[in-house]
Nucleic acid binder design. Sequence first.
DNA 1: GATCATACGGAGTCATCACTCCGGATAGCA
DNA 2: TGCTATCCGGAGTGATGACTCCGTATGATC
Lengths: 181, 181
Amino acid sequence: MRRDGAANRERILLAAEQVFGTGGAAASTEEVARQAQVGIATVFRHFPTKQDLIEATAVRYLGKLEGETRRLTGEAEPGQAFASLVRTLVSTGATKMALLNLLPGDGYEVAGPVTTAAHNFLDAIGMVLERAQSAGAARQDATVDDVSTLVRALAHVAAPGEDEAVERAVGIVLDGLGVRR
Amino acid sequence: MRRDGAANRERILLAAEQVFGTGGAAASTEEVARQAQVGIATVFRHFPTKQDLIEATAVRYLGKLEGETRRLTGEAEPGQAFASLVRTLVSTGATKMALLNLLPGDGYEVAGPVTTAAHNFLDAIGMVLERAQSAGAARQDATVDDVSTLVRALAHVAAPGEDEAVERAVGIVLDGLGVRR
DNA sequence: GATCATACGGAGTCATCACTCCGGATAGCA
DNA sequence: TGCTATCCGGAGTGATGACTCCGTATGATC
């Protein structure tokens, strides 16, 4: 693969994360091309359909989230680490709701790279959750799916500018999850 | 207004609630016309723009929700009434998420009939909430906005068929709201 | 039952968007 | 530096959807 080709692919993915994140999946591919400073044909050469582009962007984004989540596994305070995870996911999810919608449980295809990436991400969340539970800082019967569902839910209403309302809602959910604060 | 005109207006609003509810605001006006068994021009004669149609549908729907909510004010068990309210709103919201998105706090215009209807609806929720709080069946510092935010959030992920996951999430949120179960 | 204001249907218009075609660069290598 | 496989841009193309035009039908009033 030629170097300029690889570089453009990167620029496109970066732009797509921004565009689809803020505008939802309804945002146009042309907008992505504009933001990436690339011709529309170049986008379609790298990603034959809009769906392919969205999926590639989602995989990349989920991988990033997974990395951030795994980093929290080493935190000294498991309860705080978990609370911090939820807060972070909700607020970053606020500007990427279209991508979060691709998580399982939101009516997505059963197999494929997106689902794999999502599972890896959920595994990472599970590790943080279990550490909190072992430390007695989260209720024992909570599952990763519970956390996933609640985070996706909160992310949907977490529009930028509604910080205070969202913070209150997150606090109530964390109480429901038995997280010590 | 002629009788057939009024009747068609009703059929259109009914169809719109169904179509926009399940398909989101992205659903086409033609689909509404088809479902209402009416020509496309008839829809636009009654509601000059698609936005007008969505707003009229939302006002109607919010009024219906308000009525159901006020009915819960007379329940014997305030805590159960509140829990039942949340459950009902989340599950009905699941098939009308596009309309629930028009509630304040989701980036909608400040004035107008939709906002008025939404406020009336929130008032009704407030009455149910306060009764539960007075009975010691809900935490004292919870506000109507908290409930509104959480319900909207849950409704977004409450796809039909995900009943069990949603029920668990609702349970956790109710725990966070201090609702006795 | 005649008149006419009110309503109706569906073909057409215009804009948007996903996706394609093709002539013109350019990176990498000898 | 010259060659070529790879890559690029932007003007199409076809489909879809919001909205309009206009000839026809019908409910209300006399």
